[in-house]
Computed example of a mutant assay.
Amino acid sequence: MEGAVDSLAHILVVEDEPKLAALVGDYLQASGYSWHWVADGRDAVPAVKAQPPDLILLDLMLPGRDGLDICRELRSFSDVPIVMLTARVDEIDRLLGLELGADDYICKPFSPREVVARIKAILRRARLPLDVSSTTLNIDDATHRAVFHGALLDLTPVEFRLLKTLAAAPGRVFSRDRLLDNLYLDHRVVTDRTVDSHIKNLRRKLEQVAPGQDPIRSIYGVGYKLEID
């Protein structure tokens, strides 16, 4: 199934419930998006390679192959925004999906209007130009690339947004709440330790490139700041 060719963006819907997929598709088409639907998890990656979408709505529970496994493979070759659709509300599953490289998640049951609003917000944010440059760090939002000391960093979308936020105002202290507002497009209920976990992973990757250097400073009781040349 596909919507109109003349559209703002192309969305791939990977969902095994035909009525739900059709409902979401109707709202996408009404908003000017073209869309394509696959119901079997085994068809998701081939569909992305055949016609790269601008965003993927990816169900967690699928026949043939589960959404987390699909997300993991997609992130091995693509930075396309991925929104996980799930009826499983366990926090571990949510965080696991994000750590694998998903950009957001929506819990079932959901409003199709909410889905469209999330898509618009994610695509709008993805297209915002940003070029942060210094002698040690370069961030190009258009290509989703971050280079530290001349080495390309292998970052998840969440880690990239975290680094981008800190680098946009070097020396400024960001509270955990402020960082969470920039990391996630919704107002999910997570602890501030979620930021600490992502900071830890980001520091590890920076350390791999430049051993002994840690440009991220922890400000006790406040948050974090980035110090770069």
Rank of each mutant, 00 (worst) to 15 (best):
R75T: 10
I82T: 03
L130T: 11
R203E: 07
S31L: 06
G171W: 11
D6G: 14
S7A: 06
R42F: 11
L226E: 05
G101M: 01
I82W: 01
L20N: 09
A9K: 07
I199Y: 02
L55Y: 00
K200M: 13
P215M: 00
Y105E: 02
F110I: 09
D40C: 08
G41C: 09
A47G: 05
S134N: 12
S134G: 09
F77K: 09
L58E: 05
L28F: 00
V80S: 01
V89T: 15
A47W: 05
P46W: 02
L130W: 14
P112A: 04
E114Y: 01
G25E: 04
E227I: 13
I82Q: 09
D196H: 09
Q208F: 15
I70Q: 07
L202T: 10
Y105L: 05
D181V: 04
I122S: 00
R176G: 08
R72F: 07
D181S: 04
C71L: 08
S175R: 02
L179R: 03
A44K: 02
A87I: 08
V45R: 14
H144Y: 10
D54K: 03
D154A: 12
H10V: 04
D69Y: 10
V24W: 00
V116N: 09
V189P: 12
I70F: 13
Q213N: 04
S218N: 14
D214K: 05
D59Y: 03
C71Q: 01
A146S: 03
E17V: 01
L152T: 15
A39Y: 00
V209R: 00
L68C: 12
S31Y: 08
K205P: 07
A22M: 11
I216M: 10
I216F: 06
R42S: 14
D181L: 03
L183M: 14
V13M: 03
R125C: 04
D177R: 15
L68R: 10
D177E: 15
V13W: 00
R88F: 11
L100P: 11
I139W: 04
D141E: 15
R172C: 04
L162M: 14
P170C: 10
D59P: 04
L137P: 02
L179A: 10
T143Y: 08
R125H: 06
P81L: 14
W35Y: 13
K49Q: 07
G32W: 09
G41I: 09
G25A: 05
L226Q: 08
S34H: 06
D66V: 12
I199W: 11
A167S: 07
E99I: 13
A30T: 03
